[in-house]
Design a protein around this nucleic acid. Structure first.
Lengths: 176, 176
DNA sequence: CGTTGTGTTCAAATAAAAATGAACACGATG
DNA sequence: CATCGTGTTCATTTTTATTTGAACACAACG
């Protein structure tokens, strides 16, 4: 086999996209997901990768992502790792090709629940611990201050509980 | 008046906090709000300021924030601007003092609705525009591809609608 | 009016986050 | 078992976000 000849599907696709460019549809999809993942505090590259896979009719290998997105191998590998970690992307077997090929899982709720589980939940947990510690400190204050501080703490606790009550509902709403 | 003599309340408070340090309660509150605002993608300094105001029994002026948080005047001013912009903080009049004094508004929901109105809503709006553009591009594709792409677009539209349906509910839940 | 106290703005410096690219691990292949 | 193809890791570089600090605006005050 001549060194580095891309497979048939890739060659056909490239014919429609001179110089490795994007179709307008792909550009829009990538834009969409870039701003989406940024909203969740993830790196842009994750949005680029997911966007391209979302728009792509065929599974793509790491090289294809690098070429089409002008992205280093390291970035592509790490982005895929993140996306795999919460199931937004999965590998499919392509006969006669050793490389891993990726497709997007269309269940967008996976992004949201990953965000909740990895960012929001830990915040609520550490928040609970902090509130407990504050309650400890409270007892050491002179009475006048204690009352004011106590009222504020009650507010905090209330918010924490509201958050905790909302999360399961939110997850159910998104996951359904 | 002797140059730069702090007012009475400040002098008393300082007596309890040698070398401009924080009480344990304040530290916990500030920590809490730093991680909270980071979750919403705001700069840490905003969380520091709000945290200190939240814990403080008396209104604080800009200088107090600078001193206690070891923060430049510019950062304090900008942080307060953000907090004011969505009503998380407001000024109170202190007789005989020209400086603005700030207190925290305890309605934490203001953070959430600011986040939704400033970050989430614009994303949904531009998302809607992008989906419309994608539908345009779709018509120019060969039939085989068009069908696959069309199905994906339907998914996107569905998510967008879900998001739009959820926001008002979320706001109501938080605001109540 | 000039001066002083207070707060804002913004260009420059710094810190934090993300991307690069080269070294590495590891299985497939001859 | 040496080499090649594929993917991961991580120290370094680049980019982006945040903070600083000095210049400015403006009102209070004498």
């Amino acid at each position: 086999m001549p060194a580095k000849l891309p497979n048939l599907a890739t060659r056909k696709a490239a014919a429609r996209r001179p110089s490795g460019g994007m179709s307008p549809l792909e550009v829009e999809a990538i834009d969409f997901f870039i701003s989406f993942v940024r909203l969740l505090g993830m790196p842009k590259s994750v949005g680029e990768i997911y966007g391209l896979l979302f728009a792509s009719p065929e599974p793509l290998a790491l090289d294809a992502l690098m070429d089409r997105l002008h992205m280093s191998k390291g970035a592509a590998s790490q982005g895929l790792k993140v996306l795999r970690s919460f199931g937004a992307v999965r590998t499919v077997y392509v006969p006669g090709d050793r490389r891993d090929h990726y497709v997007a899982d269309f269940e967008l709720s996976k992004f949201a629940s990953a965000f909740i589980k990895e960012e929001v939940q830990p915040h609520l947990d550490s928040g609970a611990a902090r509130i407990a510690r504050m309650e400890q400190h409270l007892t050491k204050l002179p009475k006048a201050e204690r009352d004011a501080a106590s009222a504020r703490l009650a507010k905090l606790r209330h918010w924490k509980e509201k958050g905790e009550a909302m999360l399961p509902w939110l997850l159910k709403f998104l996951g359904a």
